[in-house]
Nucleic acid binder design. Structure first.
Length: 656
DNA sequence: GCGACCGTCG
């Protein structure tokens, strides 16, 4: 057009600017801006609004502001476009400043102003503010838009405000928004997050023309509610539609993968991931984070490392979600050093990054590193939250740092203004209890501002077991909630009796638990051999390779006995299958308990494991299972904790 | 005769 000598006008420029914006070509946009300046259209309102829009969408808010500042005449679209720019750039402060400026100028916000202004709060995660602003806007405008309703419903879902969502659903119907697809999609999602999948499904059926978001909302509703097979079924329906406009995207795949990951169904999870790659749908940070979280839960270090490699090749390793997932995966798979090096290399760290690293150090018994990281976080990082304190307190508890733990517990409420919850009390009781300060722990429980739960009593009970105190154990027994489903507490009590040779009392507690139909969920162990994960648990038939495990255990047991090791029999084996009972009789399982359970491994105890075997996970009774064996070091996992044995010395206090 | 600003899902 320009080559043929036709000049642009106030209609041409907006179209070209829009094209630049959709290509994300900011250089070209600036060049067009130059043409605007020399061709006399710099005062055209439409052109200027489009320039503001383009710069805002391309992340150049400074350029957008320059255009805005130079304008002597602005209309409501100008203001709305600025708010939209702040929203796209997650700049809530900028939007708030602009809103105040607007008020100072005596301008009333339009419906679309409210939409953008509310949206920026949602994008910045300020969901409470979204709801406040929604009320304010409805009060002032006496109406709303479907777009705002979609945003507010999504914030309700984030805040678990399902009652409010229902009220807004009422407003949707009375206000005539019920046929608006964006609102319908949002409603599916909020009902789905509340676990009301039938309502989500019927809302979905009511949508006449469904888009991909509608499908994804339904798939994730089922996946979130734990119905991953149904989620996959809906996903297949979507695939079978064979509609060019409705091809599953990264969100659809990630929802199904996330559903299987949450259920620790790794086979299905990786199968869907493979399908995703074959369909040439590119995974993003959310997909990778789901897979890493699965690897962490099922202790699949090999696959976790492959995913780490994939994320590097896909240039995603700098992403904060991926980084957090890697720190979590490495530390939970027993590789605290690799977790640490990922953390050190992260360019941005959020609350979750810091919490994951502190918890990672804590579960490996590296309390001093956990505390150093915590202090560093206080100095440079985000404000510690409830999870941070669970991590530091349990780190102290694991390492027996009583003074530090007490100090942190006080600081938590006095300096950080975080009131301790049940988990924090469990940690501090565990800390004091393990240190033998049973009376102090008991006094603390009595002073708790709310009713202690089974975890708190369980921590004290466990301390009674360690320090062979039956007096306090008896008191706890009377305080235990009889409706409790915490079978672990009963089993601990039973073990205390057993350790004192009070076999009848031990049996009574067990019978009491059994008559109420309480059964301990069997502990499960996992072993990763050649990138394949094997699961075994007591009472179940084992997969192949068990002979090798027993061979190793026999070897360990024999060596321990040869070193003059005396087994700690304070635990009794319970809820075992017939096969295990036979093994207990022939002494096999006792060796297992010795090897993994409660060993005072003597100094310089030679640890040799055949055929590079790696076993991980936990069994309730035979709690400690090897996770990683190198020439000089053995890492053992006990629930969420890790114990490092090096040259016969263990970093865990229990083994001193 | 033509335009600008808002939104839902992992």
């Amino acid at each position: 057009m320009r080559n043929s000598g036709v000049s642009s006008d106030g209609f041409t420029f907006p179209l070209v600017i829009k094209a630049c914006t959709s290509m994300g070509d900011s250089k070209l946009c600036k060049a067009i801006h130059g043409h605007v300046l020399v061709s006399g259209y710099q005062f055209n309102l439409h052109v200027r609004n489009d320039l503001i829009n383009g710069y805002g969408k391309m992340g150049l808010m400074e350029d957008a502001l320059k255009v805005f500042d130079k304008m002597s005449y602005r209309n409501h679209v100008t203001w709305n476009t600025m708010f939209s720019g702040f929203a796209h750039n997650f700049d809530c402060d900028g939007a708030v400043k602009m809103f105040r400026l607007m008020e100072r100028k005596g301008l009333e916000p339009h419906l679309l102003t409210w939409t953008s202004f509310i949206s920026v709060h949602k994008r910045c995660g300020l969901h409470d503010r979204v709801i406040e602003l929604f009320r304010e806007s409805r009060g002032k405008m006496n109406c709303s838009t479907g777009e705002v309703i979609a945003v507010v419903l999504s914030s309700c879902a984030e805040l678990d405000k399902f009652q409010m969502a229902k009220e807004i659903h009422g407003y949707v119907i009375s206000g005539g928004f019920q046929d608006y697809m964006f609102v319908q999609n949002s409603l599916i999602s909020v009902y789905g997050k509340n676990g009301n999948i039938e309502e989500a499904r019927s809302l979905f059926m009511e949508i006449k023309v469904k888009n991909l978001v509608s499908w994804n909302a339904l798939i994730s509703s089922f996946a979130d509610a734990g119905f991953c097979d149904e989620a996959q079924e809906i996903f297949s329906q979507l695939v079978n539609l064979d509609d060019q406009k409705l091809r599953p995207n990264v969100v659809s795949f990630s929802a199904v993968i996330g559903g299987f990951a949450a259920k620790q169904r790794e086979n299905e999870c990786f199968e869907v991931f493979r399908e995703m790659l074959l369909s040439r749908v590119h995974p993003n940070s959310v997909t990778i984070a789901s897979l890493l979280s699965l690897c962490a839960e099922v202790v699949a270090l090999g696959i976790g490392k492959e995913i780490h490699g994939y994320s590097i090749r896909a240039l995603m390793d700098k992403n904060i979600l991926v980084g957090n997932g890697l720190v979590n995966m490495y530390t939970k798979c027993g590789d605290v050093m690799d977790g640490c090096s990922v953390f050190d290399r992260m360019e941005d760290r959020d609350l979750i990054s810091w919490n994951s690293m502190i918890a990672g150090y804590g579960m490996h018994g590296r309390a001093s590193e956990a505390l150093t990281t915590f202090r560093e976080m206080v100095k440079l990082g985000p404000k510690p939250d409830v999870v941070t304190f669970v991590a530091v307190l349990s780190a102290c508890s694991h390492a027996g740092l009583v003074t530090e733990g007490r100090k942190l517990f006080d600081q938590m409420s006095n300096e950080f203004m975080i009131s301790p919850n049940m988990e924090h009390y469990s940690c501090i009781v565990d800390l004091l209890g393990r240190a033998g300060l049973l009376q102090e722990a008991y006094e603390l429980i009595k002073k708790m501002p709310f009713e202690p739960d089974e975890c708190v009593w369980g921590a004290l009970l466990n301390a009674c077991r360690i320090h062979k105190n039956t007096d306090i154990a008896e008191v706890i027994k009377s305080r235990l909630n009889l409706e409790s489903e915490m079978t672990g507490t009963y089993m601990c009590l039973s073990n205390i009796y057993a350790s004192h040779g009070r076999w009848e009392d031990a049996a009574k507690v067990r019978v009491a638990a059994k008559t109420r139909g309480l059964r301990k969920i069997p502990g499960q162990s996992r072993i990763e051999v050649k990138k394949k994960s094997y699961i075994f648990s007591s009472g179940n038939s084992f997969q192949s390779g068990l002979d090798e495990v027993y061979e190793t255990l026999d070897d360990l047991g024999a060596r321990m006995e040869a070193e003059g090791f005396v087994p700690d029999k304070s635990f009794v084996l319970q809820d075992v299958g017939d096969e295990e009972k036979k093994e207990i009789l022939n002494g096999h399982s006792e060796k297992l308990a010795i090897a993994f359970g409660h060993a005072n491994i003597p100094p310089n105890f030679p640890i040799r494991v055949t055929k590079n075997l790696r076993v991980c996970g936990d069994c309730h009774n035979w709690t400690k299972i090897f996770t990683k064996v190198t020439k000089r070091e053995v890492i053992v996992r006990d629930g969420r904790r890790f114990h490092h044995f090096k040259d016969g010395l263990c970093s865990c206090r229990d083994y001193w």
